[in-house]
Simulated scan of single mutants.
Amino acid sequence: MAITILTLPNGHLSLEFDVIDLPNVIAAVRKHYGVPLIQQYPVLAVFAFGGCSFTFQNEWDDPCLISSSSDGDEILNKLCAELNG
């Protein structure tokens, strides 16, 4: 599956990818923004990088990074373009 962007009802974005793509997503984040700060919770994690926070979920082996800001949306678009390029 290709890495895709999904527009959420609140207008922000979700970077959708397969479990097998997770190492590549993390590598792209580290390449451009350094090691993300991660706060782990029972059903999700919050990743902080690039001055933004992203919700990371991996329900049913269907991981995604969810933005809650316009700056975060821009970061996810850039990551998606790079990972699919």
Rank of each mutant, 00 (worst) to 15 (best):
Met1Ser: 12
Met1Trp: 02
Ile26Gly: 00
Ala48Cys: 06
Glu74Pro: 00
Glu74Gly: 07
Ile3Lys: 13
Glu59His: 11
Asn84Val: 10
Glu16Cys: 07
Ser14Met: 07
Asp71Thr: 08
Ala27Lys: 12
Asp61Met: 09
Tyr33Trp: 14
Ile5Gln: 11
Leu83Ala: 07
Leu8Phe: 08
Ser53His: 09
Val19Phe: 03
Asn24Trp: 04
Ser69Val: 07
Ile38Tyr: 01
Val29Gly: 01
Pro42Ser: 09
Cys80Tyr: 07
Ile3His: 09
Pro23Ala: 01
Leu44Thr: 05
Asp18Cys: 03
Leu13Lys: 14
Pro36Thr: 08
Trp60Asn: 13
Tyr41Lys: 13
Ile26Lys: 11
Ser70Thr: 14
Thr4Arg: 11
Leu15Thr: 03
Gln57Ala: 10
Ser14Thr: 03
Tyr33Phe: 15
Pro42Val: 02
Gly50Ser: 05
Lys31Val: 01
Lys78Ala: 14
Lys31Asp: 03
Phe56Glu: 08
Phe47Tyr: 15
Gln57Lys: 13
Leu22Asp: 08
Cys80Phe: 08
Leu6Cys: 07
Tyr41Cys: 04
Leu37Glu: 10
Val43Pro: 00
Gly50Ala: 05
Gln40Ala: 13
Asn77Glu: 14
Ala48Trp: 05
Leu37His: 12
Asn10His: 07
Tyr33Leu: 06
Ser67Ala: 15
Lys31Gly: 00
Asn77Met: 15
Phe17Ile: 03
Val29Arg: 04
Gln39Trp: 07
Lys31His: 06
Cys80Ile: 04
Leu76Val: 08
Glu74Tyr: 07
Ser68His: 11
Glu59Asn: 10
Gly11Ile: 05
His12Met: 02
Ser53Ile: 04
Phe47Ser: 04
Ala2Thr: 14
Asp21Gly: 02
Pro9Asp: 15
Gln57Arg: 14
Leu13Trp: 03
Glu74Ser: 14
